[in-house]
Amino acid sequence: MTREALIDSGRIARFLLAAVIVFVFITLLTPVVLVVWASFFDSSFLSFPPPGYTLKWFAQAAEHGAFLRGFETSAKVAFGATCLGVFLGTAASLAIVRSGLPGMKLIQGMLLSPMIVPNIVIGIALYVFFIRIADGIGIDLTNGLWGLILAHTLLTIPWTVRLVCANLVGLNRSIEEAAANLGASPLRVFTRVTLPMMRSGVIAAALFSFIISFENLEVSLLLVQPGSTTFPIAVLQYLEFKMDPAVAAATTVQVLIVASALLISDRYVKLSRVV
């Protein structure tokens, strides 16, 4: 290849790279930007360019019963599943990283396994299983908050194990050893040294768990009953009917919640390491 050809191909490569970067940014951000933008349109249907801007759709969305109840249900479920999942997952992570027992890699794999099972299959398997329990011992979990919380705990445990384990592996053991050598009891070392050091991992796990549970659609589909759906299901049902600024406003609220959670967790954990 001649020198000119080389320089030329370098130029083409740089141009292609720039094109790819721009295209990827557009693909990633277009849907989110459009949802937020459309929620301010002053018209009852989509129209570009919008005739004007208004905040009324946020009030409208808040009055739409399905969105409001969905929001409440999703918040409760996400809160419950986060508490349960972060508690169980953090305890398990301690044993996985610290115990040095054989088989811990396998157990970690088991705890992460809900991530590779299709969410729709998780939801259906649980639905079938809950009905079996209801037939057997009369406890019906198929349409209550507890069934949903249990189902979503399957989402929050793996995220917690992943984030807290990564955090624990990076912790400096010598500080704990120093505390023990200076006469601190094991319990004291744990509460005064280990737990504070784990703080960032646990907070990140809690925030991610909450988001992942809140936005999940597939796991909940069969575990809700009409009138008490989760927020993503309420949005889906509305979208099957029509797309307008009111539903855009409702989803914008979710976008804002995720954005604030993300900005908070950015302070505690290196975000490029979470997926």
Binding site: P31, I212, F214, E215, L236
Partner: peptide, 19 residues
């Protein structure tokens, strides 16, 4: 900016593509 759309969820993103 890469992580954000992922966490916003598939329903919201599909709504955005509908717009």
């Amino acid at each position: 900016a890469v992580l954000f759309p992922l966490l916003v969820g598939n329903v919201v993103r599909a709504a955005g593509w509908t717009i």
